[in-house]
Design a protein around this nucleic acid. Structure first.
Lengths: 277, 277
DNA sequence: TTGTACGCGTTATCAT
DNA sequence: ATGATAACGCGTACAA
């Protein structure tokens, strides 16, 4: 920056302002600075900028389990919204224990991220400065903006469709639709904490006990279409986009910033159409 | 840090050294400092540390398309390896054009990441300081460590299994196994640039034209097992772990750092077993 | 073994 | 509209 300043015959401060597009800089000076910066191949150091301005341009995104099939879609949704504004994604895995969560929260705090998107139940015994957007199926008692995936209404949709259809339902302690278990990854089980399972688990299975054959798959719409099943989807891309947009709104102090947004999982027909209630 | 130093009755420098585990600090002093830091809830600022030490503890991971189903698995593999060493993942989307790639490369450089893992063909007209690990199906003329997914040998496996089996093969301009297309996401097509497709595309389809019924799915082993198909997998988690390990080895100057590592995609039987040639 | 002082690259503040 | 300078919080060479 010093070099650019010298070459352009101005002060460091002027370089900083010119490159950032400060409106108080004369267009003549701005041109000089841009030209000098270009010819020297200069570009600002994001780390130093972060230290000085206290804004890192980093968005922390926390998953409970990184290896879920929808992780990429969620990230794509966030990235689509925030990359245009030059924010980058710092991806972390929270794990299932509170100790691990604490570690992650600490790291994000120490890295001075401008905002946090936390999928699942977060853990914040420590102070966080930026906005916190929580994505979960249940709103909980944590300060922040909550993106709630309304599994109840998803369940209602399924029940409505299920009438007159035949479904297989396993009757174990934790009942779930047959046809879902084989789709899980080898080291993955239908645990309480996985988000897709919370959808499954919240369904009123009793109401569709009579069904015998048609299976409703959750979270794999293209597979469902291939097999000719109905499908309650986990709208990961949309959730990511919504969470990203909300974070930006808070950071930049504009746009809407509600306390809570409800997203209802879409139900797809075997033909791939969205069914609205 | 100043506060911690005061409370412990030592100098800032001593605090820095004590917390980092410098061996020259007496254990008595170290205890004092740790206690003071704990009681004040102090922890070092990663940004300032990055500026001063020129090491950010950040690993840049670049995907061509974030929304792929295996993005999460890959990230999980990297995270598993590097999170123990307190590295964090900075995830970026390169897009398909060179202009976009350049932007991403610039951003990573400006952020001073300690290393870069680039999935697909990278673009580096600018100088990069840390190690570069390229994950792709073809080794290309780019400086760095290359993790090569050997699709040719994957194809050989399939051909061997395909003998005597019946398969459906579409004969369009871009032939591929039936059963794969319906599994793609709605906005996704079997394009040349997608990695799974490069596997498909490299198969010698002519050799199995005679087949009529059994379909070999690529990249969805659990689905394949459910449906009773053979499956050539895209070992995303393993690739991530390998790439992460290689990056760390270079950064920390220890362990192996070959110029090239070849990974052969595993072939799963309908029962879910790995078939070795 | 510990303290002092400077440097890291940028932005904010105040002055001009 | 621009310049000068003090932070920002930490690492570290050097001195003690």
């Amino acid at each position: 920056m010093e070099d650019v300043a010298k070459l352009a015959g101005v002060n460091k401060a002027t370089v900083s302002r010119a490159l950032k597009g400060d409106s108080r800089i004369s267009s003549a000076t701005r041109e000089k600075v841009w030209e000098a910066a270009r010819s020297l191949g200069y570009q600002p150091d994001a780390v130093a900028r972060g230290l000085s301005s206290n804004r890192t341009g980093l968005l922390g995104i926390v998953f409970e389990d990184l290896t879920s099939p929808w992780t990429g879609e969620f990230l794509g949704g966030v990235d689509r919204v925030v990359s245009k504004q030059h924010y980058s994604l710092l991806v972390k895995c929270s794990g299932k224990t509170e100790a691990q969560r604490l570690l992650v929260a600490r790291d994000l705090a120490s890295r001075n991220v401008d905002g946090i998107i936390w999928i699942g139940r977060p853990f914040f015994p420590i102070a966080i400065d930026g906005p916190l957007v929580v994505v979960d199926s249940d709103p909980i008692d944590v300060e922040g903006i909550h993106v709630v995936v309304d599994v109840k209404r998803g369940a209602e949709k399924i029940l409505k469709i299920a009438e007159g259809k035949r479904c297989e339902v396993e009757e174990g302690e934790k009942s779930f639709f047959k046809g879902l278990a084989p789709l899980l990854k080898g080291n993955e089980s239908l645990s309480d904490s996985s988000l897709p399972f919370r959808i499954i688990n919240s369904l009123n299975l009793t109401a569709i006990k009579g069904c015998q054959k048609d299976v409703l798959l959750c979270g794999y719409p293209h597979l469902a279409r291939l097999l000719g099943y109905y499908c309650l989807d986990w709208p990961a891309f949309e959730l990511g986009a919504v969470a990203g947009r909300l974070s930006l709104n808070v950071i930049q102090g504009k746009g809407v910033r509600p306390e809570k947004i409800v997203v209802v999982p879409p139900l797809y027909s075997p033909e791939g159409d969205v069914i609205s209630l």
